[in-house]
Simulated assay, not measured.
Amino acid sequence: MSRRDYENDPHAPAANSLVPAASAVVVDDSGRVLLQRRRDNDMWALPGGVMEIGESLPDCAVRVSICFLARPLGGRLAVSEESTDVRWFEPGEIDALPMVPSIRKRLNDWCNGNMPATR
């Protein structure tokens, strides 16, 4: 089943659950941003994940970021069961990538120096 994010959509179905999660902008020494291509919607997204019981939002963001950074194998990043691709992108390449509006907002916050941003 594909995932759909609803934001400011008056026709969105009523919410039936709440899943706290965090994502993080991970930048390497060259200024490139780490993104994953999600398996559920084929869109590019920040590393992120669901919070665990007793975990704070910042702790969750750090944990999920470390999971992605701990995946390099032989100099290459490896995809997870939730992604089809994981890559580093130059900031100027990001605008052309398909992504949901909520992820684009987070990246725009980072580009504009508005960090940390919580949404």
Results as ranks from 00 to 15, higher is better:
Leu46Lys: 04
Asp29Thr: 10
Leu34Phe: 02
Leu18Gln: 09
Gly113Trp: 00
Ile103Asp: 02
Asp42Ser: 09
Arg4Trp: 01
Asp9Thr: 03
Met51Ala: 11
Asp95Gln: 15
Asp9Cys: 02
Ser56Ile: 08
Pro58Cys: 03
Met1Cys: 10
Arg39Ser: 11
Asp42Ala: 08
Ser2Trp: 12
Ile94Met: 02
Asp95Tyr: 13
Asn114Lys: 06
Arg119Val: 12
Met1Ile: 04
Glu52Ser: 13
Val33Ile: 10
Gly75Tyr: 03
Pro58Gly: 03
Arg37Leu: 11
Leu69Arg: 08
Ser83Ile: 01
Glu82Leu: 12
Asp28Trp: 01
Trp110Arg: 11
Ser2Lys: 12
Glu81Leu: 15
Arg32Tyr: 03
Val19Gln: 08
Glu7Trp: 13
Leu73Thr: 13
Asp5Thr: 14
Trp88Ile: 02
Glu55Ser: 12
Glu90Tyr: 06
Asn8Ser: 10
Ser83Ala: 09
Ser80Thr: 13
Met1Arg: 10
Pro47Ser: 05
Ser30Thr: 13
Ala70Lys: 06
Pro13Trp: 02
Cys60Val: 01
Ser83Trp: 03
Leu77Met: 12
Asn16Ser: 14
Pro10Glu: 07
Pro101Ala: 04
Ile94His: 05
Leu46Glu: 02
Glu7Ser: 13
Gln36Phe: 07
Phe68Arg: 04
Arg76Lys: 15
Leu35Met: 09
Thr118Ile: 15
Leu77Gly: 05
Ala45Trp: 00
Ile94Val: 11
Ala12Val: 11
His11Tyr: 11
Val62Asn: 08
